[in-house]
Amino acid sequence: MIDALTVALGVTALLLAAWCGFAAYRDQPTKDWHFIGMAVVALLAVVQLVIGVVRLAGGDDPQQGVAIFVAYLIGSALAVPIAAFMSLTERTRWGSATVSAAAVVLAVLEVRLYDIWGGVGG
């Protein structure tokens, strides 16, 4: 379950990065639809955080340690919301570029999370 979610989150984060990157390329700020996209990705990240904590409470043990796992979960839950606020106060193409970069960071975090959890089963 958590592996599938990690993969899904990584893919949607890359899609969001491409979408906002395209907006930056076309010299456009983030719009309502972009924020809806960010909300979807952010929601997935929060769900992942909750499921991760529940799994830890249930006695599961991430391969590379609990502390690192939780730190990455929190980091990936915060990445997109923070970028969304930064693009709210930057109504230019650079606001879009910021969200795009944050989404790439989130995708990288998901790859690391996959390794930290153990990569198989789950």
Partner: peptide
């Protein structure tokens, strides 16, 4: 502007 991306 571009500085926003750098801050992030």
């Amino acid at each position: 502007g571009p500085g926003r991306l750098l801050v992030m």
